[in-house]
Amino acid sequence: MINYLKNIIKGFSTILVGMKVTFINLFRPNVTVQYPNVHPLVRAGSDKMPDNARNKLNVIIPKCTGCKSCEKACPVNCITIETTKVASIDTEKPLMEDGKKRVFWLSQFDIDFAKCCFCGLCTIACPTSAIVHSTDFEYSCYDRNELLVHFSPFNKEQVAEKKRILAEEVKQKAEKALADKQAAEKAAQEQNITDSKIKSSDDQTSANQNIQNNSN
């Protein structure tokens, strides 16, 4: 009987203790913030996002060499890079941010943020810190395709143009190589025949001129 009453009193008192706790908390200030009105950067405990915060990726194209390290480092294959070699006959002479000569055009640099897992491995792999995390985390959208972000500075026509220039250069080089080959063959033939030395020397000078034009 005493035990029975004890249990009732114990149960009742623990409930009162719990009610005391909630009553005290009723008058404590709130710890939440109203998110879109108050930016979460000012939430309790930290006044800014940490330096290494991993949010949306950003690519600084002038820094990017097109080495594809990030593409290889990505565990979910969300980065797609396509590079086009800078043609030597291109009138545009691109430079890197540090003043060095650019080797590759970034004809395609896509990051699919629907796939990205924000592990940060690409930023570690990048030798020139071209791919970095920004502080932007509010990029939700209604269409999944909007999450596929193109970082390449070129549009499709420009990419086609650059590819055309490169193809032209390749073609020219091939022609030159062919011409060289033909000239060499011809020279060899002529040496074999050793008929008219004057005529062959004329041919050689014209071939030299061709090479000089090409290299310019």
């Binding site: 405990g45 930290s46 940490p50 290494n52 915060a53 991993r54 897992c117 924000f118 592990c119 940060g120 491995l121 995390h133």
Partner: peptide
């Protein structure tokens, strides 16, 4: 989570 975020940059999946 705040401490770990400052250390690693992420709040839940730290890597």
């Amino acid at each position: 989570l705040g401490i770990l975020e400052k250390l690693s940059g992420a709040r839940l999946l730290y890597n």
